[in-house]
């Protein structure tokens, strides 16, 4: 079942085309990656998918309903964690529920549960600055989870982390997403990360960003040293060139 679909999306800024005729779909429970070099229009595409910007051409559909230009329909996590520095971790995580007018006590219970699941049970009342980079990213992800949306858009969710924390987070992230059966689209320009995490990869390239390839990640082992992994990586490098 297709959960999120973008059809023929195009956008220009001051007469300059950024993306053109981009069509993509996300199936239920699928992890889809948007892979492309910097400046190819990935974030513009995300802003359109999340309803923050109106496309010049095309439409976005969520479970068949047109949601073009309507924000709040999908969960959106940007590159940095964007935790409010003056709110405790739990109050940050509760934010989407409070915005939906959920009762405060119920919101706190839900936030506590998700933080426990994300190994942040000790950090409820801490301020974001007291957390490590990985913990902050997990808290931000917990907040995105609580938007309760069927689809999550993640814009380079691990790019701000060091290599070791990043590796740990990637493993943990895939397990959690699969456990919850969530549909996600994430942006990366790291081919390894794309293969490790996604079920399908869209390659976005060209002077004006458009989808040039769609690659199914059908490998048995998600191990960067396995033969399948290396073969797929070479294939993607060729396509990205």
């Amino acid at each position: 079942m297709v959960v999120l679909e973008g059809k023929g999306l195009g956008k220009s800024y001051e007469g300059e085309k950024i993306i053109e005729n981009v069509s993509l779909r996300v199936e239920k429970g699928e992890m889809v990656c948007l892979l492309g070099v910097s400046g190819v229009g990935k974030s513009t595409l995300f802003n359109i998918l999340s309803g923050l910007e109106m496309p010049d051409e095309g439409d976005v559909f969520l479970k068949g309903e047109c949601v073009t230009g309507k924000s709040g329909k999908v969960g959106y996590m940007q590159q940095s964690d964007l935790l409010l520095p003056f709110k405790s971790v739990i109050r940050n995580v509760m934010t989407p529920l409070i915005l939906k007018k959920t009762d405060k006590k119920a919101a706190r219970r839900e936030a506590e549960a998700i933080l426990e699941e994300f190994d942040l049970g000790e950090c409820f009342d801490m301020l974001p600055r007291e957390l490590s980079g990985g913990m902050r990213q997990r808290a931000a992800l917990a907040r995105t989870f609580l938007t309760g949306c069927d689809v999550m858009l993640l814009d380079e969710p691990f790019s701000a982390l060091d290599a070791i924390t990043r590796g740990k987070m990637q493993d943990w992230f895939r397990t959690v997403i699969k456990r919850h059966g969530l549909s996600t689209v994430f942006i990366t320009h790291d081919i390894d990360e794309a293969i490790l995490l996604s079920d399908r990869i869209y390659v976005l390239s060209g002077k004006v960003g458009c989808i040039t390839d769609e690659i199914l990640v059908d490998i048995s082992e998600r191990d960067s040293s396995s033969e399948d992994f290396i073969r797929l990586k070479k294939e993607i490098i060729e396509k990205v060139k």
Partner: peptide
């Protein structure tokens, strides 16, 4: 105010 956080709030429909 952090532009990213403002965008995030918009994306959450605030």
């Amino acid at each position: 105010a952090d532009a990213g956080i403002l965008l995030l709030y918009r994306s959450m429909g605030a």
